[in-house]
Design a protein around this nucleic acid. Structure first.
Lengths: 176, 176
DNA sequence: CGGTATCCCCTAAGATACTG
DNA sequence: CAGTATCTTAGGGGATACCG
């Protein structure tokens, strides 16, 4: 059985609260349906599959080869999910070497357009993001270094203040 | 140390291949930067944070309360990531009860707009998706049932064909 | 208040092997 | 070829405890 499904018992259906523009409402809804659908769409492989299928339909192995890095299991899983969601269609040709073609449904095609916008955003900002990361890391490194220097200094002071002989009977050894 | 980071050693930088429209190129790039950024954006909490911060800046605990379900650890992690990527800014007020405000950077704001498009898509299609899922599940259930009926029939036939006594010495029991 | 560090569990996803 | 079944592992993410 197992079914490896989920989706059903997660985050019980929360009735749509009408067309409310409030952002708080947005994330409320995000918690119910949007979140889940988005997670599926944006998962590791779905995007790639949708991207590839936008040009023309492909068979299983063609997708497998095109994606490079996806395991058989993950590709099958991804395709079944997308099929279940009505985003890709699966047509089996009962030939001798079995042939299965995957294609985008009309709905899948509209999703592709939307996703494309996100990808474009990412492409446009990837340099800015890389720069921000570099800056952040530089700052973090500087801070860490400063902290270490300070710690060393403190240790030196402690050493100087202590009597030449080591531990005075109990407690206090090197001090952290 | 641990740092719990990653990001660095994953998927070495792949130089941008110019502005090529080919879809194959798209997913190639998706494998390098887009994929990773998208994963961050679409992760369990980032979306919510960005959504909330779009209205006005918030402090840590305000976000914590607003999101409901997020652990301290995850919220902190998410915020660090978003800060590192230059999507949210973190300003510390050195008051007696320390106060830290988080806000969207300009880049974060543009991302919000883009994400919003995706959310709108999801909202517009969630009914269609739900319907597709229901249809798929119905089909699957029907198929499974049919398979079970067939199996039962086959078992009945096997039982009838077999002599009243059980396994004939070696091999062939129920036959697959 | 605003975090970081630690432990620990559980699921997602890769590798492998088998089936129709 | 087009999958499913099984095993195993990395890391996402919660709970808890402690620092500044």
């Amino acid at each position: 059985m197992t079914m490896e499904d989920g989706t059903f018992e997660s985050l019980g259906y929360c009735a749509d609260t009408g067309v409310d523009d409030d952002v708080l409402q947005w994330d409320q809804r995000a918690d119910c349906e949007v979140r889940q659908i988005l997670d599926r769409i944006a998962d590791k492989w779905s995007l790639l599959v949708i991207a590839l299928l936008d040009k023309h339909s492909l068979r299983f192995t063609e997708l497998r080869r095109a994606i490079d890095g996806v395991s058989q299991r993950m590709l099958a899983r991804t395709l079944r999910h997308l099929e279940r969601d009505g985003l890709v269609s699966r047509t089996v040709h009962p030939t001798v070497p079995p042939r299965v073609d995957y294609a985008l449904t009309p709905m899948g095609a509209t999703l592709h357009a939307t996703i494309r916008a996100l990808v474009v955003w990412t492409e446009e900002h990837q340099n800015a993001i890389a720069a921000a990361r570099a800056a952040y890391d530089r700052r973090a490194a500087a801070e860490r270094e400063a902290a270490e220097r300070e710690a060393a200094e403190r240790a030196a002071i402690a050493r100087a203040a202590l009597p030449s002989r080591g531990s005075p009977a109990l407690s206090g050894q090197v001090v952290s």
